[in-house]
Design a protein around this nucleic acid. Structure first.
Lengths: 207, 207
DNA sequence: AATTCCGGAGAACAGTTGTTAACTGCATGG
DNA sequence: CCATGCAGTTAACAACTGTTCTCCGGAATT
């Protein structure tokens, strides 16, 4: 299917990647709304004008980063939620999986957490849209569970959003946790919060 | 106690207020890390250098805004959580109270939601600290409830954080809800989420 | 082999930024 | 009433920003 694309387009995608990576790195200690176009090109080592060959503005670059960052989250969420029961062991494994994802893609997690409510409207909207898609997928996954018998679509979606938000909060806490002791505290609290939600789920009045 | 402070200090606090208010207004469509000192002074109508008489930097101003914004949230949280039972009517009233608060102080809510994970470290830390204080207060309030019999301190704090985070998420959703229809959807979902948490709380295994 | 296409470079633009220094005028405390 | 303190002003600084236009060299197309 995918042809070995020409030298030309290969180079273009290479600098595009460099721009995205440099931006993501720069966003570790600032918000997207203060990220300058020149700042990014300087970090990559290309002329400022080269930026326009790839993105209309930094906001546009931000939207591209959303796709990328939430793309990496995608399989993680799926793995976290899927599977029949939600026993204590499964919850513990889910929390650990979140922790591993934060270790693997800290910049992605930081970007999403920061820009979800950030100062750039198109980016906010893109994140909201993607998270809504995620919630919808989680809902579908939850629907397969035997616990979901008698649940309305709205209730399932409500629970899915609760899970997604909770996952994001936990990921953000992992991100800020510096030493191992604090990490353990986060793990512990997140685990118990999920357990409480799970309890509420089991006792939810079905139609 | 509080003397009628002199004309001098009164004027100073007046421009300080003006700076804070102007900054808060400007932060409606950008993040703190991109807020310029000159931008703020221009909006107020004073010379750029006057800024330094009040704040060391925009980050410093941000920290001051944290105290203010979370100060307004303080009584709201207290009212939301306090009271013995958490019946359906009480939950509904709590959600409505959140909605009213967002209507009353939209800029405050936006600021906290945005800068909680924002690009300015001192501000992030200030918010984290204040929210931890809130959670601790909520914990104390929860401890008074008869439902809290047999709950450990850690479990109560875990639940308190869950409530605080949930409240912030709901507030942020209200903020972005434009028409009345969407507002109703947010109200509905937040209500059911709190109801589910409440169910989990009732069935939490006590020691 | 000749021509078109196009990612990137270079230079220049008007406008902005944070920060400094030295000042002015007025309320304050002796 | 006079001297000090201090909020706010003015002017200037080097550095930075996004954006435009023109150009170059090499891959792609014919």
């Amino acid at each position: 299917m995918s042809h070995t694309l020409g030298v030309r387009q290969a180079q273009k995608q290479k600098t595009r990647r460099a721009l995205l990576d440099a931006a993501l790195a720069l966003l570790e200690e600032q918000s997207l709304s203060s990220l300058g176009l020149r700042e990014v090109t300087r970090a990559v080592g290309v002329a400022p004008t080269a930026f326009y060959r790839h993105f209309r503005s930094t906001a546009d670059l931000g939207v591209a980063l959303v796709e990328e960052a939430l793309g990496s989250l995608h399989p993680m969420i799926r793995t976290t939620v899927s599977g029949a029961d939600d026993s204590d062991e499964r919850i513990a494994r889910a929390v650990e999986l979140i922790g591993r994802h934060v270790d693997a893609y800290p910049a992605h997690v930081r970007f999403i957490a920061r820009e979800r409510h950030g100062g750039v409207q198109p980016v906010r909207e893109a994140i909201r849209e993607q998270l809504a898609r995620f919630a919808s997928e989680v809902k579908d996954e939850l629907a397969k569970d035997r616990l979901a018998a008698g649940w309305s679509e709205d209730d399932l979606l409500m629970l899915a959003h609760l899970y997604v938000d909770q996952m994001l909060i936990t990921a953000s806490l992992f991100l800020e946790a510096s030493d191992a002791r604090e990490r353990a505290r986060v793990t512990d609290m997140a685990t118990r919060q999920l357990r409480l939600i799970s309890l509420g789920r089991k006792h939810w009045p079905t139609a």
